[in-house]
């Protein structure tokens, strides 16, 4: 037992060290610490800045703790009489010191926090050698358990994936047709909630071309885990080409088709050459009860979703349903 005791204490002392190692080792791999855009970069810088303070605190406390526990054990060989003072009740000087230092650390953390908070409310600032561009507006709307991305200026809409140009700020307009969700693309930046009946604005930007994972990060029921999407960040030329292809080749989104897609369930990727904003914006108070009025009964139904299943497994069923409802008409 004794040996384990000592081992454990050593282990405790090693914890902060292992934290540094893990952080630096995984630096390039952990999504949040591997930014591909200015927003995520700002957040990474802030996180690392705070980590240094935290490590300082951890080291100080662990060192003091180890010292106390080792030195003042009752049965430590070589204990002296002077090592025991049962009537010590406090010391004003040292108590003031250990109140003031954390206070200073809090101030040191507050300033960059508040600063970045205000920065993140605006489109990312342009670097010196780039020209300023109007942000690209994309309405990101969730419905159980899928994503609609509407590009009002381009008049196209995609489901469960999106294309964005690099080096241009994206202004996401977030809203939800039903439960509260959150848009999160870890490599591009932090998350924000999508809520029915109100609209959140969220700025992100990609510096590097690539395919990034995005998802809903706020629990909203059975299909939550599968409510993911992919972000294709590409050069402005490729992006423009994709836009015109979609405009030319994709079918138009009808309200009937949209209502069908809105029903709770999983669905595959789709693209359309028009947007649902033409008849409803779930970010307005008027659009708040659109989905629930149409699919009230379906929200209680279970999919019996298992981990190996994906949208395709449910598509057949959904299609069958469609045929049945067609026959009913």
């Amino acid at each position: 037992m004794k040996n384990i005791n000592r081992l454990f204490k050593k282990g405790l002392a090693l914890l902060p060290l292992s934290m540094v190692l893990l952080l630096s080792g995984c630096n390039s791999e952990l999504a949040v610490l591997d930014p591909k855009g200015p927003v995520a970069q700002t957040q990474k810088d802030l996180i690392l800045y705070s980590v240094y303070f935290m490590l300082f605190i951890v080291v100080v406390v662990f060192a003091a703790f180890t010292y106390m526990v080792v030195k003042y054990r009752e049965n430590r060989p070589g204990r002296k009489e002077t090592d025991y003072d049962p009537h010590m009740h406090g010391n004003n000087k040292i108590e003031v010191i250990w109140t003031v230092i954390p206070f200073i650390i809090v101030i040191a953390l507050s300033i960059p926090t508040v600063d970045t908070l205000f920065q993140l409310e605006k489109p990312p600032e342009v670097e010196a050698n780039e020209e300023e561009q109007e942000p690209l507006v994309i309405h990101a709307t969730t419905a159980d358990w899928k994503w609609f991305f509407s590009y009002p200026e381009e008049n196209i809409e995609t489901v469960n994936y999106l294309h964005i140009p690099t080096d241009r700020p994206i202004e996401f307009k977030l809203s939800s047709a039903d439960a509260m969700t959150a848009l999160w693309i870890p490599r591009l930046g932090g998350q924000k909630y999508n809520m029915a009946g109100m609209m959140n604005t969220h700025y992100l930007e990609a510096d590097e071309e690539g395919v990034y994972k995005g998802r809903n990060s706020n629990f909203n029921g059975e299909g939550f885990t599968k409510q993911t999407f992919e972000v294709y960040a590409e050069s402005p030329e490729e992006y423009d080409q994709w836009v015109s292809e979609t405009q030319d080749q994709a079918p138009e989104l009808t309200q009937e088709r949209y209502d069908e897609l809105l029903a709770p369930g999983l669905t595959e990727e789709h693209e359309f050459s028009s947007t649902h904003l033409a008849w409803v914006n779930h970010g307005n108070p008027e659009g708040m009860d659109y989905a629930i009025n149409r699919h009230f009964e379906k929200y209680g139904e279970l999919m019996h979703l298992e981990s190996h299943q994906d949208a395709e497994d449910f598509m057949d069923e959904e299609n069958n349903d469609d045929h049945e409802s067609d026959r009913d008409h």
Partner: peptide
Amino acid sequence: IPSFVIGGVTGVMLGMASADYQFHN
């Protein structure tokens, strides 16, 4: 004491709202 300190300092990190956008949920 040491365990709680780890929980505490990460709590402060979560308290930094702009970083919390990446930690939340």
